[in-house]
């Protein structure tokens, strides 16, 4: 019988869920924060062959000098196989070397499009937003060209919206058939959305977001209540298993002992 943890934080749940989505031997484009913790956890558990790539230029490092605080940090280069710069990293992505990209944003819509640019009226108030966010960084590029993406978003009704205030990173666009291909994009788009409340996917036909599993303590109703648009529900929806004792021990003692990203 699996020894599940009873005491874990929302961040630790997200990291565990992220790690469990990663197949061994895949090339993963890593963003700052929880994705780095998730990738490292996967490397230490089910995916020792996972290959992280960082957009500032490091390919295939082992993060044994501590968690990087930035995707451009020198710690991302520890025991790397290949180091160049940003053009090289995104050319690899454009060419098709990157299997999975982790991206996030302040807002997400039913088709997995993301906003990390601005809150306010676009285009009228582009130059005078209500809240200016940092901008795309590499997320817009990863959304275009990674074979598929996994989204991590805080689960609140104001973040899960029917219509974005600004589309920074493309998901399934308007959900129409071949929308991404028509726009000239290459990857298959978002495959999973991970939040503190649910693991979600996208409906094959409509491309709308669909609950695949509820996180421990949540129900389909509580997930829907935290979402600003109507979610589809998979016919085999299940309760996602909590982190195991082993996963929690690795996060707390090995990967993020000083709680840089995974607060308790």
């Amino acid at each position: 019988m699996t020894d599940y943890a009873t005491d874990f934080s929302p961040g630790e749940m997200i990291v565990t869920a992220g790690a469990r989505q990663l197949e061994n031997n895949k090339v993963i484009f890593a963003g700052t924060g929880l994705p780095m913790v998730g990738i490292t956890l996967a490397q230490l558990t089910s995916g020792p062959g996972i290959i992280p790539v960082f957009e500032a230029g490091a390919v295939g490092p082992t993060l044994d000098r501590g968690l990087p605080l930035s995707v451009g940090d020198s710690r991302t280069t520890s025991r790397a196989n290949y180091i160049q710069g940003l053009n090289s990293a995104f050319e690899l992505t454009q060419r098709g070397f990157i299997d999975i990209g982790f991206i996030g944003g302040a807002e997400v819509d039913p088709y997995g499009n993301l906003n990390s640019t601005m809150i306010g009226d676009f285009p009228q108030n582009y130059m005078k937003p209500v809240v200016r966010l940092p901008g795309s960084g590499g997320a817009g590029d990863m959304s275009c060209s990674c074979t598929y993406t996994i989204l991590i978003v805080q689960h609140e009704p104001r973040r899960f919206v029917e219509k974005l205030q600004y589309c920074t990173s493309m998901g399934h666009m308007d959900g129409s058939k071949d929308a991404r291909k028509k726009a000239g994009l290459q990857g298959k788009g978002p495959k999973r959305v991970i939040t503190t409340k649910a693991l979600m996917g996208f409906d094959d036909e409509t491309k709308r977001m669909k609950i695949l599993a509820t996180m421990p303590g949540e129900t389909v109703q509580s997930v829907q209540d935290a979402t600003g648009f109507e979610l589809m529900v998979d016919k085999d929806v299940y309760e996602f298993a909590p982190p195991t004792q082993t996963e929690i021990k690795l996060i707390r003692e090995v990967i993020d002992p000083t709680q840089i990203f995974c607060k308790r």
Binding site: Q94, G140, C144, Y166, T168, S169, G184
Partner: peptide
């Protein structure tokens, strides 16, 4: 092949 299709 990057950066098209959205608002950027």
């Amino acid at each position: 092949r990057s950066g098209q299709g959205g608002d950027i």
